[in-house]
């Protein structure tokens, strides 16, 4: 009948049903299964245990497992929804869902706010912005004098910190990114639209009886 509910479904071993994940995200069942192919590849790159460690995450991003990076660390921590020190498949799908082109703008704004709120105080503070800027400068081997860095932060806070209390709250962040939409560009991965094309082998490992769009 062309309906994946018409027959009994098997589940991924140890993972949530792809149909449930698809029903709670912007992904189709086929896309969840394609993501599982990607997940298996990343989670087996150092230790094949069905979980993504921080080392495996950094290896996937930088192709170098030893490369420490404040931003990759922060993204790993946000993907580690259950705070277990590793990313399981449910975490992976639900976190990547925020980066889907069809995901709600509010979810992207919220994720980006938490990304930059390094110490999770509910505010993006000046010292956090400075810490991230210095990390970026080190990473890119760009050299800027400290007073130039301070000037950039001063200007940013004049624009973003509307009540001028020295920290950016979520409402101020929402207004700031609406005026600077390019800041949310990193929150959308167009690639997620083509995930089944990139990992066609999901068809051979599918646990649903019929693949539906």
């Amino acid at each position: 009948m062309g309906c994946f509910n018409s027959k009994a479904r098997k589940q991924f071993p140890g993972q949530e049903d792809p149909v449930i994940l698809a029903s709670q995200t912007a992904f189709t069942v086929s896309e969840v299964e394609a993501l599982f192919e990607l997940f298996k590849s990343i989670s087996s790159s150092v230790v094949d245990d069905g979980l993504i460690s921080k080392e495996e995450f950094q290896l996937a991003i930088f192709k170098n497992r030893k490369k420490e990076n404040i931003f990759a660390n922060r993204i790993f921590d946000l993907f580690d929804v259950k705070k277990k020190g590793v990313i399981d498949f449910d975490d992976f799908v639900r976190s990547l869902n925020v980066f889907h082109p069809n995901a709600a703008l509010e979810d992207k704004i919220d994720f980006s706010f938490r990304l930059y709120d390094l110490d999770s105080t509910g505010f993006i503070e000046r010292q956090e912005v400075k810490q991230m800027l210095i990390a970026l400068l080190c990473e890119s081997e760009m050299k800027l004098a400290d007073e130039v860095v301070e000037t950039i932060i001063d200007k940013t806070f004049v624009d973003a910190d509307q009540n001028q209390d020295g920290k950016i709250d979520i409402d101020e962040w929402r207004k700031f990114v609406s005026e600077n939409p390019s800041l949310l560009k990193i929150m959308t991965l167009p690639y997620l639209r083509d995930i089944t094309t990139s990992f066609p082998s999901f068809v051979f490992n599918s646990n649903v009886d019929e693949i539906v769009a």
């Binding site: 990343i42 991003i61 990076n69 993204i75 991230m132 990390a135 990473e139 130039v148 940013t156």
Partner: peptide, 25 residues
């Protein structure tokens, strides 16, 4: 010019924030 950009525009240029690399397996 870095000085013409706001701090978050600069920060968003970090390779650590480029998740597209996750798909390059």
């Amino acid at each position: 010019q870095p000085t013409a950009m706001n701090a978050f525009e600069l920060i968003s240029m970090s390779k650590g924030l480029n998740l597209e690399n996750l798909f390059d397996v």
